[in-house]
């Protein structure tokens, strides 16, 4: 019996989210009295794989080969299912990112497992197994009980901290046969957005709305995001107007985000927008309208004109960064 963590790699490298996820898996495994194992798929060098032992993974399974060199939901599901059966996994963990969303539900069918996506904390109890997730696009939480023998969870980004927990680990390379039938959705090309931090993994998000008056004024938003190491986002009208890409739209009909810090500039805070962002740990609002509903939801607020406040904020952050 074990807890199995799917650790995603980007061009052979792991990101912080994978270390958080193993730390989370280790905490669950201790409660259940089981070891935690990691699983990586694709071309990853051994020094990277060994990093996973720093957070408690006692065994690291590495599935590689031409047939898994590119992500395909059906073939990755197959690979993870095979390893899960091999190690008698009772809990299988994913990040709640695009890959987790593609694979965890398929795996649930394959293993006849109960699954809860977007979990925000450690289980509330282990027998029965109850976890917490946000529902109604962040307007509420639900405590969900999973009754199946195998349980599959996907963890919201920024929901758990990285915990160092170095163990002696072994890497086991697995050669897996993948039927051609599982390779039918063919990835043709990937267009990376260079120099931008994906919203799903950003610790800090700087977001702006119609208050910026036009796409030509986003320079200061990008600059503020850059010096904070933040991702950039926008409100629905901004993406509907085409000022920014749809990938930046956060809110009920865009993306649900979960950063440590969300800075909203020139966004009034309609209920649909707040729904997508109010599970942020800390929210800051800058708006020239003191009646803007966002002030009700935010932790810190500045009433003022964005074109006046943001440049000053940039200077203040620069001063802070050079002092720390």
């Amino acid at each position: 019996m074990s807890v199995l963590v799917y650790t995603e790699n980007w061009d052979g490298k792991f990101k912080k989210a994978s270390f958080e996820l193993i730390s989370y898996g280790k905490a669950i495994a201790e409660k259940l009295g089981m070891p935690v194992y990691a699983l990586a798929i694709g071309n990853v060098a051994n020094d990277q794989l060994n990093l996973l032992a720093n957070y408690g993974a006692e065994k690291i399974f590495h599935v590689k080969g031409d047939k898994v060199s590119k992500f395909i939901a059906a073939s990755y599901t197959h690979a993870i299912a095979e390893i899960a059966k091999k190690v008698d996994a009772k809990v299988v963990l994913f990040d709640h990112n695009y890959t987790g969303r593609s694979v965890a539900p398929r795996l649930a069918v394959r293993l006849d497992a109960g699954t809860v996506s977007g979990v925000v904390a450690l289980p509330i109890s282990y027998a029965p197994f109850v976890v917490k997730r946000s529902v109604y696009t962040g307007k509420a939480f639900a405590e969900m009980q999973i009754d199946s023998e195998v349980k599959i969870l996907s963890l919201m980004p920024n929901s758990f901290e990285v915990r160092e927990n170095k163990v002696a680990a072994s890497v086991e390379t697995v050669d897996l046969d993948v039927a051609d039938e599982l390779l039918k959705a063919i990835p043709v090309r990937i267009e990376k957005i260079e120099g931008k931090i994906p919203l799903t993994e950003a610790d800090i998000i700087v977001s702006a709305g119609r208050g910026l008056k036009g796409p030509q004024n986003w320079g200061m938003i990008e600059e503020l995001a850059h010096i904070l190491g933040a991702g950039t986002a926008c409100s629905r009208p901004v993406s509907d107007e085409g000022w920014r890409g749809h990938d930046e739209h956060v809110g009920q009909t865009g993306k649900l985000v979960h950063p440590n810090l969300y800075i909203a500039i020139g966004i009034s805070g309609a209920i649909q927008h707040l729904a997508g962002v109010n599970s942020s740990k800390v929210m800051v609002v800058v708006n020239n309208d003191p009646e803007a509903p966002f002030f009700e939801a935010a932790h810190y607020g500045i009433v003022g004109d964005a074109f006046d406040v943001v440049p000053k904020l940039i200077e203040a952050v620069k001063a802070f960064k050079s002092a720390h």
Binding site: W10, Y98, V188
Partner: peptide
């Protein structure tokens, strides 16, 4: 996808 777009056929 995380960090971009992917075209799939």
């Amino acid at each position: 996808i995380d960090g971009g777009k992917e075209v799939v056929e």
